[in-house]
Amino acid sequence: MALVLAPDPPLPTWLSALDAQIARAPTFFDGRPVLVDLGALPSTTADVAGFLRSLEERGIRIIGTEGGHPSWAGVEAWGRPFPSAGKPGRPVEMPDEIAARAAALPEAPKPAPGGDATSLVIDQPIRSGQSVVFERGDVTVLGSIASGAEVMAGGSIHIYGALRGRAVAGLAGNGKARIFCRKLQAELIAIDGVYQTADDMPAALIGRSVQAWLEGEQMQMTALD
């Protein structure tokens, strides 16, 4: 899934906000394709090409732009938008949203600092408003994920309680990741950018023990019991 960056003027201010975000989550853009939406910039903006270069200097992999003004030099060469016909290319998170949330919610359980374990076990429920982000691997939760809470993992997510909030697995492009839960009442689940909201989930699986995985670009779900 492509992440969409939508810079707004003035650009230096936006860039410093971006730098602050990168400082907080240094691996956030690693390996992620990024689409830049230039629609919010006035047509008089100077040196947009230089701005895009400065994004690339920050390690951001730009796969295309959209909303560019035709009068800008070189705009045709900046690439077409990411083909969104395949899987829903909706960005799950804008970086500034994550930053805002991280600032607002320092109470979420955090992985042990300094450890480089590739799995995280949480032995308490994830309460509404809490967000657990673990990019290095799998997350196992022994309690429930409340409505309005979310767990995001680089690998798979195992929930030995009810999933009532959001579970986002395969964060850094891991299409092999899976989501397991004892009771499916999720608001949203996503694997490697393919997502389903509660409305899309098969009604027969709601309330049951379920696993979800990707087959190509399709999310599959089946009951475990």
Binding site: E107, A108, R127, S128, G129, S147
Partner: peptide
Amino acid sequence: VSSVRDSDRIIGMLDSK
């Protein structure tokens, strides 16, 4: 439901703040 979800949020804060 609205009261229950807000309570859940508060319980999270009781456990951390």
